[in-house]
């Protein structure tokens, strides 16, 4: 497995341990894919081949399930994944304008990642916060009653965060945080 050799050894080990811990391998594909996406951040071809081998399924079957559920992705997500809810309530309150605004600011379309790897954009169906419609989620944080004009500020905030953590990295081992 080529994926095993490019610094992913620990991740594959973790996935293997999870699979080994299953009482029964039958009917576990979706759970395993969920776990794998949690570990790797996405489901590249090598990971799918690994899972097929470990569960005794055909690679085609695994791929079929990955392609059916919109939750699963073969494209790595950004550091700050953005999801815009397109459920009925959000949609009627202008969620598509939010999507367009994000696309415009980031220069990507739904399903893509920015070249710097910071942001990815997806849409989803109802997060159960219809009272806050339209809703946008960035890296797990929910922003409610969104207006297109709010988007720029939120993205700038996360960009700044990314900058900070880069600085953190730069000082690592030197001291600073006094």
């Amino acid at each position: 497995m080529s994926g095993c050799c490019d610094g992913n050894v620990e991740r594959y080990k973790e996935l293997q341990a999870y699979i080994d811990g299953l009482p029964d391998k039958k009917g576990r594909l979706i759970g395993v894919l969920h776990k794998a996406q949690g570990i790797f951040g996405y489901l590249p071809r090598e990971v799918q081949e690994f899972i097929a081998g470990a569960l005794g399924l055909s690679v085609a079957k695994v791929y079929g399930v990955v392609k059916f559920y919109s939750f699963f992705t073969m494209v790595p997500k950004g550091k700050f994944p953005i999801s815009v809810c397109l459920g009925t309530a959000c949609y009627v309150r202008g969620a598509d304008d939010i999507v367009s605004e994000v696309e415009k600011i980031l220069g990507i379309t739904v399903g893509q990642v920015t070249p710097d790897g910071l942001f990815s954009l997806d849409t989803l169906r109802c997060v159960g916060a219809c009272g806050l419609a339209p809703v946008m989620i960035v890296a797990g944080r929910v922003f409610g009653r969104m207006k297109p004009s709010d988007v720029e500020g939120i993205i700038a905030e996360y960009r700044a965060k990314a900058g900070d953590s880069e600085k953190d990295k730069a000082c690592e081992g030197v001291c600073c945080h006094g």
Binding site: L57, S58, V59, A60, K61, Y63, G64, K67, F68
Partner: peptide, 9 residues
Amino acid sequence: VGALSGVNR
């Protein structure tokens, strides 16, 4: 053989 699977929606 396992060559085929339904994909997409």
